[in-house]
Design a protein around this nucleic acid. Structure first.
Lengths: 124, 124
DNA sequence: AACATAATGATTATCATTATCATTAAGAAA
DNA sequence: TTTCTTAATGATAATGATAATCATTATGTT
């Protein structure tokens, strides 16, 4: 568990965090809940802990087909989504992407969301 | 109304389309519904027509804080979102962005979603 | 004018997420 | 170790966005 937090280390918090880290993919709250079902954790706790961890900066989140997905990778990166199997991969951002911010916005860019869409190797 | 469709031109379809075109922003289905309330249109019809128009390619859509937003601009472009006022602007994609597709994906890119986030001029 | 059927509107259902609140348990203090 | 404060939990209800259902209406064709 990350030290960057002054929250109580409950059994449930540890379970949720470990689940996202171990899965290595981009689970929804419900997928984490299903994984931890046998532990007796409550659904509300899964939702609470996941969004708390995003606030604390130890997890990231993004929207995908109407639901929030969680990501253990918190450094800036992009995603590739297969339009056939709907799987998601972490991919690198283009080099110097932040220098390509639109002048129209006339603003300091804090972050960006970049998702590439296509058909993955397996589906092709 | 775009000619690219063989759908029946109902009064409701015309109203929904004109609303999105006239607004010039990125309304949700409910915002379109509220605009058209006085016409007596049904909420389900607004949802149906908007998603139909996206399927037909005469409108685009994207997810924004848990809801689907509709965009009259169907050519490839990015968005800038202000983290303070939550307003959304259409902005140009970086030049040659499609040539920067990640090699990891090993796939043909069909499209991409790019959203810049920061504080807009007005909020700064 | 008649017809076939796509579209509509009212409503219900679904799904993801958040709020509520009584109970439990971390972790600090005694 | 026991006590104590209060954050966290779990069960459940509430919310909000969107999709599905179905009887009725109206478009566009014959």
């Amino acid at each position: 568990m990350s030290p960057l937090t002054n929250k109580r280390v409950t059994r449930q918090r540890q379970l949720v965090y470990d689940c996202v880290i171990d899965r290595k993919d981009h689970p929804s709250a419900n997928e984490v809940f299903v994984d931890l079902q046998s532990s007796g954790i409550g659904l509300a706790t899964v939702y609470r802990q996941l969004s708390a961890m995003v606030d604390e900066g130890i997890l990231k989140s993004f929207e995908h087909s109407g639901q929030i997905r969680y990501d253990r990778l918190v450094t800036p990166h992009a995603h590739f989504v297969c339009s056939v199997c709907d799987e998601i991969w972490d991919v690198d951002l283009p080099k110097n992407i932040f220098s390509m911010a639109p002048v129209e916005s006339n603003a300091d860019i804090e972050e960006l969301d970049l998702t590439w869409k296509g058909i993955c190797k397996a589906c092709k």
